[in-house]
Design a protein around this nucleic acid. Structure first.
Lengths: 134, 134
DNA sequence: CTTGACCCTGTAGTTACTACAGGGACTATA
DNA sequence: TATAGTCCCTGTAGTAACTACAGGGTCAAG
C-alpha cells in the first residue's frame, strides 16, 4: 500500500508544496508514480522526510541535513569523513541542548513567578547571553 | 564606552547587515549615533542580539523570538498572557531537547561504530522518525 | 594627507519555503 | 452516468530571513 504525497504531508506536518520542493532540490528521491501520475511513497521516504523536518526544526540548514542524511546513505565508504561530520554535528547538538536547557530554566522561572503574581525578575534574555569575549 | 556595530557583529557571529536588518524590522531598538553618524550600542543591545541569534539557531522564528523578548519587555503587565506564551514555548523547548537527545545518541553510535571500523548499522534517520499516527 | 579599516544608505540576490493558477484524477452519490 | 468534491499534477510568483554588493563618508596611523 503506497502512501500519497498528502499522507506524507499530514504525517509530518509538512506542506505538500514543501515535499515537492525537497524532491526538486534532491533531498527526497523521485518517487514511483501511479497510472494517474500521482507520487507513490513508502515507509522509507516517510522516515526520511520526518528526519528532514525535525532536523530543520532544530535549526539545522538543509546543507547540514544533507550531510547528516549522507551519514546514512554513504554507508561503508569514507569512514574518516563520516567520523568528522558526525563529530562536528555532535558538538553542535550538545551546544543546542545546553542552550535549550538554559532557556527551559528561565521559562520555568517566568511561569513560577507568574504563579506567584510577581514577574519583575525575568532573566530570559540572560539565558542566551553573549559568550565571554575570546 | 559605546560598542560599534562591528563589535556586536564579532561578539555574536552576526553579519553587520543582519544587525541593521533586525533594527529595520524593529527587533533591535534604534541606537544612539556618534557625531560621525555611527551606531553606538551598550551591553543591553549586545545581550538582546545574542538572545535573538541563539534563539534563531535553536529553530525559533523571528515572530517567536519577538514573543519571548516580549516576556522580558512587558514586565508587570498581562500576567495571564505571559504565562500562556511561556508555557507554549516551554513545551516546544522540551520537545526540541528530546529530539536533540535522540540525535546525540545516534551520532554517538555512528562515531563509535566508525571507531570499531564497521558503519553498517547507522540508525540516524530513525532518531527523528515519524511520530505515531494520530 | 593619504591609505586602510571601518561605518553609512540603499538595492538586489539567496535560501527555504508557501501560495496560487490552471488543469487532470478519483470517489461518492443522486 | 453525470457531477460535485477532494485530492493530485506542473508551473510561476510571492514571503521570510538573511546576505552581498555599490557607491560613498569617517577616522586613526604613519
Amino acid at each position: 500500500m503506497a502512501l500519497t504525497i498528502g499522507d506524507l504531508s499530514r504525517a509530518t506536518a509538512t506542506k505538500v508544496e514543501t515535499v515537492r520542493y525537497y524532491e526538486r532540490i534532491g533531498l527526497l528521491p523521485k518517487p514511483a508514480r501511479t497510472q494517474g501520475n500521482y507520487r507513490a511513497y513508502g515507509q522509507a521516504e516517510l522516515g526520511r522526510l520526518s528526519f528532514i523536518r525535525r532536523a530543520r526544526d532544530l535549526g539545522f540548514s538543509l546543507d547540514q541535513v544533507r550531510a547528516m542524511l549522507g551519514l546514512s546513505d554513504d554507508l561503508a565508504c569514507d569512514c574518516a569523513g563520516i567520523d568528522r561530520i558526525a563529530r562536528e554535528h555532535l558538538q553542535e547538538v550538545e551546544r543546542k541542548i545546553a542552550d535549550l536547557t538554559a532557556l527551559r530554566r528561565e521559562l520555568t522561572a517566568v511561569i513560577q513567578s507568574c504563579d506567584g503574581g510577581t514577574i519583575a525578575d525575568c532573566r530570559i534574555i540572560e539565558a542566551l547571553g553573549p559568550v565571554a569575549a575570546g
